[in-house]
Computed example of a mutant assay.
Amino acid sequence: MSDSLRNKVVVITGASSGIGHSIALESAGRGATVILIARNKAKLEKVASEAHELSGADSYTIVTDMSQSDQIDAAFTKIIRLTKHVDYLVNCAGFGKFENFVESNRREVTAMFQVNVLGLMYFSRLAGRLMMEQKSGQIINIGSIAGKVPTVKSAAYSASKAAVIQFSNVLRLELKPFGVKVMTVNPGPVYTNFFNIADKSGHYADSVQKFMLDPDDVAWQVVHFFGSNKRELNLPVSLAILAKLYNLFPTIGDKVSLKFASRK
């Protein structure tokens, strides 16, 4: 533990579980004031209590559905009242579902894009404006290796994460002149409750055990790069290499994906 984030404000969406939960505690462990955003009030309050014990600093909760723009507006208004400034925004909220796209439910796909993409974009827009005025700050968007390397039964989810990655690339260019940084984090599979929704059969989670990341390890790396000029963090290294190779040799990459990476 350290005081490297003392007097810094870290806003985290999707903070009630998974990577968001771990980033909240890692930030608090370094002294940050955290503002936690998710839909589940009870879970948020538990994370806030844990964070306060670690930091001794304020820990706030704002119950928000990231698919609803009016709730995002209300949440940001509360943030301004609470702290007046934001040093880091970490957009972790998101979900996926593994199924053949032709069998997918239109409403579920729409909901996925509302949360994974549009909610993230809208929140980043509000935070970006504030950070431009501050002439400082950093937005960290959680993408996915799935947004770089295609696998079967993930068309909608992969498309949403590819959108996050490209949105972040453009936002980085637009905010750079104002001293505001943007980083994308693209993890492979992570031990979280994500798979409770995305992979109810459990087959995919079992098949990618050797690539599974611990959310606490992901959080440590993300927070380690707070304030840095790093544009993209791809995890684990083996899948980061695979993503680069796919771009260089896409035809071979498709064959490899069908044989080894599409075990859903």
Rank of each mutant, 00 (worst) to 15 (best):
E103Q: 14
P215R: 03
I140E: 11
I241C: 03
H224A: 04
L239G: 09
I72Q: 09
A127C: 15
V180M: 11
F113N: 11
I37M: 06
N116F: 12
S55Y: 01
I252G: 00
T184I: 15
L258N: 12
A205V: 11
E133W: 10
D217K: 13
K244A: 09
S55F: 07
K200G: 03
L171D: 07
Y191S: 10
I241F: 09
A146P: 10
F101W: 12
E103L: 14
F95Q: 04
S16E: 08
G29A: 08
K244Q: 14
N116S: 08
Y157T: 10
V11A: 10
A219I: 00
V63H: 05
G227Y: 04
Q221W: 08
F225Q: 06
V190A: 06
F113G: 00
K43S: 11
S49Q: 08
Q68V: 12
A93G: 04
I23A: 01
I79K: 10
S104L: 02
E26R: 06
A48M: 04
L248Y: 13
P215M: 05
V170T: 14
V10L: 09
Y88P: 05
P189V: 00
V102D: 14
H21V: 09
T77Y: 05
F249T: 13
V256E: 10
S154L: 05
M183C: 10
V190R: 02
T33G: 01
L175F: 11
K148M: 12
G94F: 00
F225W: 03
M212Q: 03
M212F: 06
E232C: 10
L233R: 13
R107E: 14
Q71L: 11
V11H: 08
S168E: 15
S55T: 08
K244R: 15
Q138A: 13
I35M: 08
L44P: 01
I79N: 02
N141L: 06
A32W: 00
K148A: 05
K8G: 01
F226N: 06
A38G: 01
P177W: 03
N186T: 14
N100L: 11
L25K: 02
M112E: 05
I241V: 15
N116I: 13
I145H: 08
K84Q: 13
L54T: 03
F123M: 15
T83M: 13
Q166R: 10
